[in-house]
Design a protein around this nucleic acid. Structure first.
Lengths: 221, 221
DNA sequence: GCGCGGACGATTGCGCGCAAGGTGGGGAAC
DNA sequence: GTTCCCCACCTTGCGCGCAATCGTCCGCGC
């Protein structure tokens, strides 16, 4: 893991890098991070490390082990199911609300949909993830409930993305491309009846992929 | 504000105390807290203070002002509406699911419902809040989605309780007593059709009370 | 061979100092 | 009186050391 000098303060850099390392599987579940060891590895002081680990603990990615360090939590199937259940409800209802309200400026959505399509074309998985996240963030912002948007985005950032590069994962990425354009079209035309079903399917299609990936991982261990 | 020696570490004590002070209105919106000033006030070092303020910032109760301190965020009506919208959806569907599944042990719920009734009887508002929170926490736990339960409880802990002691607030407390018993009865009898409406009403009945309280406060300033 | 105890090592939580940076107010200039 | 500039104060973010605590491992006794 390497710190990039993008953000100003060290704490946020550590949070971002560790989160990526955890959700991508680079830091497998069960790995124990400690404040002093990470400080040595990254060549910085313990203070921003400690603050970052506390943040990730609050986010549900780490769990503290008294005087032993912070352990990367096991992504249980129950947790995954719980996350998908909440996301499905909130994003579907937010989308339906957005379709009912209508929206003026869909250019950002269109730009991100294009970025998603290009990423799938070129096989650029990190860019796909970033663009997909940005697309849904914009969608949620348009729906006009910041609290809901914040919750959903945090849930996204908490999910392990183990199956993303699998055969099924790549197929799902490809299948998601037209769905994003369809989402935009539904907003433009105000097709409220189609909204909920499309969004539900769009989200839940990922569940078996992640479930399978986590189940495989658990079977290995 | 005073630190109680209940929890072990100072950080959590500070978080809890500050959260109570903020949601109760003891620390009005706009108040600026700084790490060194709070450290002097509480007579402890800056480190646990700083960690607590970062936590509350992440929870949405404070917002950092570069080199000026942490400001208690203004509880906008939009935010309140957003919180209620999410809570309504999640708690109602979780309750419906629980009624469908059924539950074995409702003794904890009954105990908390009794505590709620007693608190209203004696006018013990803090105890009412604690018991009501515990009741709904148990309800969410029985529904079997930890992720959802965590989200809802965090939203509860984020809401300002300004109107709780008003005339309408006290009336609402009294009206909520039979509703809690009714909730238990609905689980016992598996009355799935009544579940969603009751829970929605039970939650949303508070919205105008808090809305009014916040609107009044905003009008004063 | 097996169970137990004590010491070692590592970790957390907290206290504290310091450099960098921004805010606001007071004083000077016009 | 108004405006502008500069300085002093306060803040954040980070580095670092220390006491208390817990897990672990090795050696000793049985």
């Amino acid at each position: 893991m390497q710190l990039v000098s993008g953000d100003a303060n060290l704490r946020e850099q550590v949070v971002d890098q560790l989160r990526i390392a955890i959700v991508s599987g680079e830091l497998p579940p069960g790995t124990v991070c400690s404040v002093p060891s990470l400080a040595r590895t990254l060549g910085i002081s313990t203070t921003p490390i400690r603050e970052a680990l506390l943040q990730l603990t609050s986010d549900g990615l780490l769990q503290p082990m008294r005087n032993r360090g912070f352990r990367v939590v096991d992504p249980s199937l129950d947790e995954l199911r719980g996350i998908f259940e909440v996301r499905m409800q909130l994003e579907a209802s937010a989308f339906r609300k957005l379709v009912r309200m209508g929206a003026d400026d869909l250019s950002e959505l269109e730009a991100q949909a294009d970025a998603i399509a290009e990423s799938v074309e070129t096989g650029d998985v990190p860019r796909y993830l970033a663009a997909d996240r940005a697309f849904h963030a914009e969608l949620l912002a348009l729906a006009g409930n910041e609290v809901l948007a914040d919750i959903v985005l945090r849930l996204r950032d908490r999910m392990r993305l183990y199956g993303i590069r699998s055969q099924h994962g790549l197929e799902r990425q490809k299948a998601s491309v037209p769905e994003h354009y369809r989402i935009i079209e539904i907003i433009k035309r105000g097709l409220e009846d189609e909204a909920e079903a499309l969004m539900t399917g769009h989200i839940m299609a990922w569940e078996p992929i992640f479930t399978e990936a986590i189940a495989q991982r658990n079977a290995q261990v």
